[in-house]
């Protein structure tokens, strides 16, 4: 078990850097995790991260990529509901990178 010290707070992470306690998530740790992933967070990135947090809150799982693109298309518009858009934002895998930044567990069967 590893941990991250940030602004006087300690965040537990697993060996792959995923946040252990979802409840500890805040924008500070999100920004830190994004930096680790070399993702420069823009408004579009936050939109996806916040969408994932909402999805997790509703369903208690991180969505599979196919499900994520479909759901994003429905909520944020068809131009964003495709894997090209999401891969441009999160080049090393939207489910993996965006989920990590959102403080979610690694999605089941994801890329």
């Amino acid at each position: 078990m590893a941990s991250v010290e940030l602004n006087g707070k300690t965040y537990e992470t697993d060996e792959e850097g995923y946040l252990v306690n979802l409840g500890e998530w805040d924008e500070g740790i999100a920004a830190y995790l994004a930096e680790q992933e070399k993702v420069d967070m823009t408004e579009s990135h936050w939109e996806v991260v916040n969408f994932l947090r909402e999805y997790y809150n509703d369903y208690q799982i991180a969505p599979a990529i196919r499900v994520l693109t479909k759901a994003i298309g429905k909520k944020l518009g068809a131009e964003k509901g495709n894997s090209k858009y999401l891969y441009e934002l999160f080049p090393y895998g939207p489910a993996k990178q965006a989920c990590k930044i959102a403080g979610l567990p690694k999605p089941t069967g994801c890329i």
Binding site: D58, Y59, Q60, I61, P63, V67, K70, A71
Partner: peptide, 9 residues
């Protein structure tokens, strides 16, 4: 709640 996600799958 995850059973409600099945539709999306």
């Amino acid at each position: 709640p995850t059973y409600r996600a099945l539709e999306g799958y």
